[in-house]
Design a protein around this nucleic acid. Sequence first.
DNA 1: GTATCATCCAAACGTTCGTTTGAACCATAC
DNA 2: GTATGGTTCAAACGAACGTTTGGATGATAC
Lengths: 218, 218
Amino acid sequence: MAEKDTKERILDAAEELFAEFGFAHTSMRKITSTAGVNLAAVNYHFGSKEELIKAVFTRRLMPINAERLRRLAEVEAGEPTLEALLEAFIAPHLEMKEAGGNDRFVCLIGRSYTDHAPLLNEHVRALNKDVVARFKAAFSAQLPHLPRRELSIRLHFLVGTVAYTMAGPEMIHLLRGVRISEGDNAKALVERLVPFLAAGLRAPLPEQLPEFVVSRAS
Amino acid sequence: MAEKDTKERILDAAEELFAEFGFAHTSMRKITSTAGVNLAAVNYHFGSKEELIKAVFTRRLMPINAERLRRLAEVEAGEPTLEALLEAFIAPHLEMKEAGGNDRFVCLIGRSYTDHAPLLNEHVRALNKDVVARFKAAFSAQLPHLPRRELSIRLHFLVGTVAYTMAGPEMIHLLRGVRISEGDNAKALVERLVPFLAAGLRAPLPEQLPEFVVSRAS
DNA sequence: GTATCATCCAAACGTTCGTTTGAACCATAC
DNA sequence: GTATGGTTCAAACGAACGTTTGGATGATAC
């Protein structure tokens, strides 16, 4: 009881502070004092700051990815379109509010892709691995003309667009004051992202595409 | 002589380390030892770590933005196309190598957009302000049907795509080992980004577009 | 020669960090 | 009652941080 209470208070405080100040600039003392718990509580319940960060993401990402797969199955049950796939892929992140999520976390997700934190990147990548593979196959089926390699690159572009859009403290820097959790802003954003991304994914390939030169290992 | 040498050695080391480890995880001691200078040199020449970070960006961003404006003028001298504008906007970042830039800086530029460092964000925004305004007008002329507000949003998507693509330690996570400075990878990347982004910018608007709800202060 | 000035340097400053400790607390089980 | 085991707590740990100091260094001007 008290345990779970403390753990969740810590997760909530950490989520909020990480989103606002970043991981490196959020100290354990700030987290625990915001959560109203003892300084040692984080190490007791999570082991370390690093593990706390991972726990913050795991808590939100698991239900989001479940929802993404649910929507994917729903779309594939009918006659899938590229737009429907994109919405299934993107919307669960932005509409987290209804799933009990704090809208602060939306910008944390974005940051998990863009921040330099190798251990976190790997953790998030692992959490998303199955979902990404499933969606990649679905996208590929909708874009049969696109070589696998080129699809991968364009999906990378896609992730960048979404991550950057989510990473801002306000949803969009240009529109200061727009918050994802307000009204139907999530829907407004999805309905702008989907046509943009669908058109990008469908864009014809240039006739002569120079290959990338791979150096180094792996 | 020795001064300029020291300053540039510091800038080079800082650029490299910031790109690899991020700002918060790069200590002054690591910077100065990598540069082979005394610990106090940074504070002597730059005043503080914060000012050093700004100097790292100013050094590279000024010539890049000059080049962007030069290319924009070149494009506008003929009959501009959306693709040509995009290339003028994007390519100077990626082809910095030829301008004497370290390819490590490419990923630093990306990070300057995505990292949470308000003072740096503002600094970079100020450095880019004029360029962005000029290009925005040029894009608007190529997309006369697109309401200004919607153009702004799509340009935000664009920046996200480019920034995220540049922010990875390797140019593209999917293609480990691809480095922008190798061979013509910059060109290969530009020729994939441009069609993707041009198609996205040109995408038709949905008939019914829900407006964003603005809360809070500006 | 001496004076001047920017630069460099070893050493230390005070602060903050993540983590650990060992005792106190308080349910529940016996 | 006593024992147990998970939880909380104040306090302290050593390490790393950005910054400052005051003198040494070395070139240039006179």
